[in-house]
């Protein structure tokens, strides 16, 4: 599937409203991306279908549908299955990282993040995805 050369639309999913606000400010402020947010997995699916994000930033530990279940739901949806998913989580360990990558995530980034560096990393990941 051919992708546009530049990353523009990002969907961030996190149960914490403040992190969404900071994340959105960072992604928009440093990267100039168009950002939508969702606080639950269910909401994320709805937003994703209408917004058609190029990349999804997903939390791991969430009440209700957790990060892994949300990823599976996204993968189950034909129009979203190909969208690269990057985890952004505070609960990081090598085994969790392995589990996330095995489930189909393209990368695992850790919280807290430095906004400027987060944007740089996402750009790199996007470039990697576009190249493959």
């Amino acid at each position: 599937m051919a992708r546009p050369a530049t990353l523009k639309r990002i969907l961030q999913i996190d149960d914490d409203e403040d992190i969404l606000a900071v994340g959105q400010a960072a992604l928009e402020g440093y990267g100039g991306f168009e950002v939508r947010t969702a606080q639950t997995g269910g909401q994320a699916l709805d937003v994703a279908r209408s917004f058609a994000p190029q990349l999804i930033l997903l939390d791991w530990m969430m009440p209700g549908m957790d990060g892994l279940q949300t990823l599976r739901a996204l993968q189950a949806s034909p129009e979203l299955a190909q969208v690269p998913v990057v985890y952004l989580t505070a609960a990081v360990s090598p085994s969790l990282r392995e589990a996330a990558l095995a489930a189909g995530a393209v990368e695992v980034l850790i919280k807290p993040f430095v906004p400027r560096l987060l944007v740089a990393e996402l750009k790199q990941i996007w470039a990697r995805c576009a190249a493959s």
């Binding site: 403040d18 402020g29 919280k111 807290p112």
Partner: peptide, 9 residues
């Protein structure tokens, strides 16, 4: 995460 991110911004 929120505090640090906000302060950076």
């Amino acid at each position: 995460t929120s505090i640090l991110g906000a302060l950076e911004i």
